[in-house]
C-alpha cells in the first residue's frame, strides 16, 4: 500500500515532489498504521481516500503549474460546495436533454432517409447505416449512466477527502 501511494506521488510536478513528497509519504505511513489498527474496512477507506486525494492533488498541481490557479475552477467537481454563482442551472439541464433528443431525432431521420434512397448505382455502392434505434439508445443511456455513477462516486470520494472544500483557498492571494 505504501508503494501504491509512492506511485501516486510520482505524478506530482518535480518541484513539488522535491519539497513535499518525503513528508507526504511519512504522513501517509503514520496514517496507515493507525488505520490498520482499526481494521480492514478502515484501512480500505483510508487507502482509497489517500490515493484519490493524491491523484487529485497531482492534477491540481500540474494545472496550477501549466495553466494557472484559476484553471480548475472551470472544471469544478465541487457539486456539493459550489458557490451560487457557479451552480449548475436547471435550465442548462433542460437544454442539454432537448439537444440530445434533437440529435437522436436527426440520426433517426437520417437513417430513414438513407434507407429510402434506392441503391442502384453499382460504382458508389452506398450502404445505409444500420442504426437500430431502441438498442442503440439503450446502450447509449447505459454507458451514460455508468459514466454518471462513476463520476458521482469520484466526486463523493473527493468530497470525503476534503479536496473540494479547498474551493475558497484563492482568498489568500488578496491578503498578500
Amino acid at each position: 500500500m505504501e508503494r501504491l501511494f509512492a506511485l501516486c506521488l510520482r505524478f506530482y510536478p518535480a518541484g513539488y515532489r522535491e519539497l513535499f513528497c518525503d513528508e507526504m509519504l511519512d504522513v501517509y505511513c503514520e496514517g496507515l498504521q493507525a488505520a490498520v489498527a482499526c481494521g480492514r474496512i478502515a484501512e480500505a477507506r483510508f487507502v482509497s481516500r489517500e490515493v484519490l486525494g493524491a491523484l487529485f492533488g497531482a492534477c491540481r498541481e500540474h494545472s496550477r503549474v501549466h495553466l494557472g490557479d484559476g484553471f480548475l475552477e472551470i472544471f469544478s467537481v465541487r457539486r456539493f460546495a459550489m458557490r451560487s454563482a457557479n451552480k449548475f442551472p436547471i435550465s442548462a439541464l433542460v437544454f442539454m436533454i432537448l439537444s440530445l433528443l434533437a440529435v437522436v431525432y436527426t440520426i433517426a431521420q437520417a437513417e430513414a432517409l438513407s434507407l429510402s434512397i434506392r441503391q442502384d448505382n453499382p460504382i458508389l455502392e452506398l450502404r445505409p447505416v444500420h442504426f437500430v434505434l431502441p438498442g442503440g439508445l439503450l446502450i447509449m443511456w447505459l454507458i451514460a449512466g455508468i459514466l454518471g455513477i462513476a463520476g458521482w462516486a469520484i466526486a463523493a470520494a473527493l468530497r470525503r477527502s476534503g479536496a473540494e472544500r479547498l474551493s475558497r483557498t484563492e482568498t489568500w492571494s488578496s491578503a498578500k
Binding site: C8, E23, M24, G53, G57, E61, S161, A163, W172
Partner: peptide, 21 residues
C-alpha cells in the same frame, strides 16, 4: 467531520507557504 487526505493537506500547506501565512 473534516477528514483531510494527505494530498489535500499538502495542497493547502503549499498555498499557505506561498502566501507566507
Amino acid at each position: 467531520r473534516v477528514v483531510l487526505s494527505t494530498g489535500t493537506l499538502y495542497g493547502a500547506l503549499r498555498r499557505l507557504l506561498e502566501d507566507r501565512w
